[in-house]
Amino acid sequence: MSEVKKATRDGFGEEIVELGKKDNKIYVVDVDIGKSCKTGQFRAELPEQYFNVGIAEQNAAGVAAGMATCGKIPFVVTYAVFGSLRMCEMIRQEICYPNLNVKIACSHGGVTPANDGASHQCIEDLGVLRTLPNMTVIMPADYYSAKKLVAKAAEMYGPCYLRFTRDAVPIIYDENTEFEIGKANLLREGKDVAVIANGDTVCIALKAAKMLEQKGIQARVLDMHTIKPLDKEAVMACINEIGKIITVEDHNILNGLGSAVSDVAAESGKAVVRRVGIQDQFGQSAPYERLLEMNGITAEHIVELAEELVR
């Protein structure tokens, strides 16, 4: 893990330009927060593929669906809270039900909009959207994986929700790492406990694994960038080979990554799962790290849970 930090929304903003240049079917549908969601370069370089429909998210989802029926690959770009909840029923009715090739690309995931406060933080989206049939749900962990996963999302057919961070997060990968939608990336091997994280908490999981190593505990760390379809094979391997799992996410502990992993664990009847995430409470305007701390999303807490499990 490098000391360099970069927001994953920047990875999206850069990659979408490259994709749009290569394929003129790639459209951006903005809702007046393009600057903040990093579509400025796309707008400048590819004006014919760029549409700003104003502060009207529901309409944006419908417009994108209509474009997709005509063979376009629209990316609706907004903040996670609007892209998941304000647009939710339109995504269900007009994108997921007809299984149209629309991507919802959202900045400001989790508590990363920190000082914007609870109204702009989004802790429900991954859970809500993973319950929609036909939907793929992704949160990249860093700048490089954001670029790669945006490209993969454009390549695949079907509805896809991508969640990025507003704030800078540490770089974990390099530009040569490969990603596959629905396939977790193994970041660290270990036999004592498995830590499965996504998005901006992957770096926290890695930090915890280092701390655990000092204590003689070997943690396996997985970046579960795709929460749906979940890489059940990777989860089953954790269950069968380790049996002790900690999930970490910048999302409500209800219905997010922890719940998805717990589904698999419960059905296997063979593993213990501890979930680290937002404690089913709204946030507030505060520094990002403080908001994580308030919810126990810290390396220290992961270490504590791991020690309990291993003991």
């Binding site: 419908g62 669906a65 209509g66 474009m67 005509c70």
Partner: peptide, 16 residues
């Protein structure tokens, strides 16, 4: 919801 989809189709027709 259908109207917005129709608008998307109209935009696509113009773009093409």
């Amino acid at each position: 919801q259908g109207f917005a989809c129709g608008v998307g189709m109209g935009i696509a027709a113009k773009a093409d």
